[in-house]
């Protein structure tokens, strides 16, 4: 295992000790529980989470400043919520001094770039109190999710209870108990194209990153990466927010996370290289070289 998992101080398998959170959560309820704890302790005074948008299963960035508001948002939507678009507004309209934000690896990259190169993010850099990153293989535009659920799975979006990607399949759970699984082969072509040059699977730049991969059902794998992340995580553990198991003792464990991370990075690195000779002596732009 090398650089594919990023820098981290600690890795465990964990789940929330709050029954209510677990009931609504995608897996171990890590994001919701950690934000809840941080809100209650005043470590953050609001969090940019993915709230409910105008259409069913369409997320939009939502600033939760209370636990009640936060509790309306658990779960994964598998389509894009422009989380970073609210990062300056959170410190202005909402007057937050300590901002929490949850996002995908690319959104964590955007946050950290924004802290080091704040071109249009006045007075934001020192107000990011807790950035939680999720594991992400790729994301989907809303229209793609609609197409997958309504055309391929034959269900109305409004009657879907849960979506999940796991065990090599895209799962759609209906409100009446029906379950449709689509092979990932079907979903691949609907992925957001921008994801195909992404070289981060486990949110290397978050304070704390989490995802289901590596842990048993109902649990999440957690990486604690930064000083801030470590501080908050250890306080949360001290307060009894999480049940944890050493990652070495769970199946499928860290090896699985590493395997998927390497798969993503290798595949996308290849895409980056192919873009360099995409046309006839004409390259597509590579953001990792220059603007």
């Amino acid at each position: 295992m090398g650089t594919e998992l990023g820098k981290y101080k600690l890795c465990v398998s964990a789940r929330s000790t709050d029954k209510d959170i677990l009931k609504k959560a995608q897996d171990g309820g890590i994001v919701t529980q950690l934000f809840k704890f941080a809100l209650e302790e005043g470590i953050i005074d609001g969090a940019i989470v993915a709230g409910q948008g105008d259409e069913p299963w369409r997320p939009r960035p939502f600033i939760a400043t209370t636990v009640e508001e936060l509790m309306t948002t658990p779960g994964t939507r598998y389509n894009i919520s422009p989380q970073v678009s609210w990062i300056k507004e959170a410190t202005r309209s909402y007057g937050l001094d300590k901002v929490g934000i949850v996002g995908t690896p690319c959104q964590m990259q955007a946050v950290r770039k924004g802290q080091l190169y704040p071109v249009g993010l006045r007075d934001v850099d020192d107000k990011i109190a807790l950035a939680i990153g999720i594991f992400c293989m790729e994301n989907f535009p809303y229209q793609s999710i609609k197409q997958l659920v309504e055309d391929h799975a034959g269900m109305k979006l409004e009657s879907v209870k849960k979506m999940d990607i796991g065990k090599g399949k895209f799962w759609v759970y209906g409100a009446r108990g029906q379950v449709v699984q689509l092979p990932l082969k079907v979903t691949h072509k609907y992925e957001q194209p921008g994801c195909h040059v992404c070289l981060d699977y486990v949110s290397n730049l978050a304070d704390v990153s989490t995802g289901s991969v590596g842990s048993p059902d109902g649990w999440s794998t957690v990486f604690v990466r930064t000083r801030k992340g470590d501080d908050i995580w250890s306080k949360a553990i001290g307060a009894g927010c999480f049940e944890t198991k050493p990652i070495e003792q769970v199946k499928p464990g860290l090896e699985m996370v590493s395997k998927l991370a390497n798969e993503k990075i290798t595949k996308n690195q290849k895409t980056v290289e192919e873009r360099a000779k995409f046309g006839v002596n004409k390259a597509l732009r590579n953001p990792y070289i220059k603007p």
């Binding site: 960035p61 894009i80 422009p82 989380q83 970073v84 678009s85 609210w86 990062i87 300056k88 507004e89 996002g103 995908t104 690319c106 959104q107 955007a110 770039k113 924004g114 071109v119 249009g120 993010l121 994301n139 535009p141 957001q192 194209p193 921008g194 994801c195 195909h196 040059v197 992404c198 597509l284 732009r285 953001p287």
Partner: peptide, 21 residues
Amino acid sequence: QGLCIGCGSCAAACPVRAITH
């Protein structure tokens, strides 16, 4: 260029709020 990931950084940075998604 097939690079956008819809993160919203542009909208946050815009001083005149000209950017929506």
